[in-house]
Structures are given as structure tokens and as C-alpha cells.
Simulated scan of single mutants.
Amino acid sequence: METPSLFKRCFAEGIGTALLVLIGPGTAAFNGIITANNNESTTLADIGVISFAFAIIVMAMIYSIGRLTGCHINPAVTIALASTSHFSWKEVGPYLLAQCVGGTIGAFGIVTVLGMDGVVLGNLGATVLAPTTGYLQGIVIEAIAAFILMFVIMGVAVDSKAPKDWGGLVIGLTVGGIIMMTAGATGASFNPARTFGPYLVDSLLGGNINWIQFPVYVIGPIIGAIAAAVTYTYMTSSKKLPLSNEASQHEVGK
């Protein structure tokens, strides 16, 4: 199959990120509307539903555009792949721009579906640190979440020895699992574009966004994703033994 042009791949990345934000944060925003109208608190069951929505859309995008773009739909993933020579640095900028534009379009899509309640009550599913989560702690949590995701991506999608056809399912379920664990502390973004879109659109429409927290959702995921990609690459790298050592090993194995 011929590799699509950079423009077509970026276009697909934009669509993938837009749909990720529409379905994932959109579900979170809808849950926010429900809990606000009923004067209730978000429960673990609610987080489970939101996590499942993320898992479904991630799986769908991987199987839809993965063969075209690699389905990064996350700037941290793109940067991590480039840092380990699995992606061209000259294409990082266009991919990141496409992902951020896609995230913004997806956030506008939430407004289209949920109306201004999605902004006022649902906050467009924007991520926010819990009152008990410190700034540095938030960065660390986001880094851990991105590390887990990127480590799995390396193992089931990037590695040439990865099992075929299972990548989308495993990665999607991993995303869901991470959200179940970290949503209460940071909102579970581990994706700068996923946070950027709702932040920008919510701000433009008069929502309440604390932009001072935005670096948490950029610094943490990028550090975590790079660390995972480097770690996995180190674990799976091998040096060819000198001929004399290879001969010795062959003899021992007789």
C-alpha cells in the first residue's frame, strides 16, 4: 500500500483527534450535565462509563486510520515515537497542529450536541486537577498515565514482533483502565490535544477554565511517553555478538 501524502495523513489525524474529543470528553460533559441537574456527585460507575467511551473511540480510530497515519491522535505519542526514531521529526509539527485543530473541532462538536449546557454544566469534559492534587503531583500522575499508554503502544503496535490485529483492542482497553484509575486526580488526559480542544472552546464560549493548569497536561504526558518509548527500546535492543562469542554459544548449545 502506498503511503498517503503528509497532508492526507494530517487530515486523518485531525479527524481521529476530533472524534476522540467528541466521544470521550463529550461523554464526560454529558455526565457533568446529568450530575449537575440531579445535584449529585460523580461516582466510580460514572467514570467507568466515561472510560468505556474513550476505549471504544480509541479502538475505532486505530482500526479506521491506523494503517494510514499510525493513529497517534496524541501529541505525546507523536513526540515519543520521533524521539526513538520511529517517526520523522520533520513531520512532528504538522501532526501536532492537526491533532490540536482536531481537538478544537471535536470540542465544538460537543457544543453542537449538548448545547451551552455542555459548556456551563459539563465544562466540555475539560480536565482539571482535584483540590487535593498538587501541581507537581499532577504532572507526575499524567506522566505515569502516558508512560503506561506508550509502553503498551510500543509493545503491541510498534514492535515488529507484536501480535497482529490485537493492537487496537489492547490499546483501547488500556486507555479505559488508565482513566478509571487517574480520572479523580487529574481528569485523566495524558493527551495534550485532548485537553487543549475543550480548554480553548470552553474559554471562547465563556466557560470556567484555569489555563495555569494546562502545562500539567503537556509536560507530564510528553515526559511519560518519551520515557516509555526509550525504556521499551532499551529493553528490546540487542547487540550482535562477536563471531567468536556466537561460535562459543553455538557450541554450548549442542
Rank of each mutant, 00 (worst) to 15 (best):
F11S: 00
L22I: 05
L22V: 10
I23N: 01
G24Q: 07
G26Y: 06
F30G: 12
G32N: 14
G32H: 11
T35H: 06
T35E: 06
N37W: 06
N38W: 07
N38V: 03
N39V: 14
E40Y: 05
S41M: 11
T43S: 15
A45W: 07
I50Q: 06
V58K: 10
M59C: 12
I62W: 13
Y63S: 10
G66C: 15
H72G: 09
I73S: 02
N74W: 10
A76C: 08
A76I: 06
V77M: 08
S83W: 06
W89L: 11
V92Y: 09
L96I: 15
A98P: 13
C100G: 03
C100E: 10
G109S: 07
V113F: 09
G115L: 01
D117S: 15
G122T: 02
N123P: 00
P131W: 08
Y135H: 12
L136A: 14
I139A: 12
I139P: 11
I141H: 13
I144A: 14
I144K: 05
I144H: 04
A145M: 13
I148E: 08
F151H: 06
M154D: 08
V156D: 12
D159E: 13
D159C: 04
S160Y: 02
K164C: 11
D165W: 01
G167K: 05
G168M: 00
G172N: 13
T174S: 14
V175W: 03
G177D: 00
I178S: 09
I178R: 11
M181K: 05
G187K: 05
P192L: 02
P192K: 11
P198Q: 10
L200H: 05
L200Y: 10
V201K: 10
L205F: 14
G206N: 03
G207F: 11
I212L: 15
Y217Q: 13
G220I: 10
I226S: 05
L241D: 00
A247R: 00
S248W: 07
Q249C: 00
H250I: 00
H250Q: 07
V252I: 15
